[in-house]
Amino acid sequence: MKFKTDPFVPALVLIVILAYFFPEAGIEGSVVPLKAISSIGISLIFFFYGLKLSPDKIKRGLNNWKLHLVVQLSTFVLFPLLVLPFYPLMRNAEQHTLWLAVFFLASLPSTVSSSVVMVSMAKGNIPAAIFNASLSGIIGILLTPLWVTPFLGQTNTNMDFGHIYTQLALEVIMPVILGILLQPLGGKIANRYSRQLSFFDKSIILLIVYKSFAASFHSGIFSQIQWHDILLLTGIVLSLFFTAYGLIYIISGMLRFNREDRITALFCGSKKSLVHGTVMSKVLFYKMSTAGIILLPLMFYHGLQILLISIIASRLAGKAPAEKQKDQ
Rank of each mutant, 00 (worst) to 15 (best):
G50D: 11
K271I: 12
R315I: 12
L62V: 08
I45Y: 01
L100P: 01
F103R: 01
L143E: 09
L81T: 08
F21R: 14
P88K: 14
I164T: 02
S43V: 08
L266D: 05
L206W: 04
I173G: 08
G140V: 03
L62H: 05
G235V: 09
A11G: 07
E260N: 07
V77H: 00
S273L: 03
A214H: 03
S219I: 15
A129P: 00
G235T: 07
F267K: 03
I225R: 13
K326W: 04
S115P: 07
H302S: 02
P10K: 13
L135T: 03
L266N: 08
M174Q: 09
K326C: 07
Y249Q: 11
A265I: 06
S113H: 10
L247Q: 02
I294E: 00
L206A: 12
N156E: 05
K287Q: 09
G303I: 04
I141Q: 15
G235P: 06
Y249V: 10
L18Y: 14
A265P: 04
L146R: 06
P145Y: 06
S30V: 08
A244I: 04
I309G: 03
V172L: 10
I126R: 00
A244K: 00
K4W: 10
P127E: 06
F76A: 01
L178V: 13
V31G: 07
F213P: 03
I42Y: 04
F213R: 02
Q224F: 15
L44T: 12
P184H: 08
T5R: 06
K123I: 09
P80E: 12
Y249R: 13
S203D: 12
L181S: 14
L304K: 03
K319P: 05
L18P: 08
T149Q: 14
P297T: 07
L247G: 02
M118H: 05
T155V: 15
G41R: 01
S239L: 13
I250A: 15
G41W: 03
P150F: 12
L274D: 00
L206S: 09
L34M: 10
I40P: 05
V283P: 00
I130G: 04
P80C: 13
F76K: 03
K59T: 02
M159F: 04
L84W: 11
A25Y: 05
I141F: 13
T149Y: 09
I42W: 02
N125E: 11
L89N: 15
P10W: 15
V279F: 04
S270W: 10
V279C: 09
T264R: 02
I221W: 06
R192E: 13
R91E: 14
I173F: 13
T5L: 10
I251P: 04
E260D: 11
K188I: 02
T166H: 15
S54P: 07
R262T: 14
L240F: 01
N125F: 00
S219P: 15
P7Q: 05
S194V: 13
D201Y: 03
Y49N: 14
P184G: 09
E260V: 09
I139R: 04
L255C: 11
I164P: 01
V117L: 12
R262F: 15
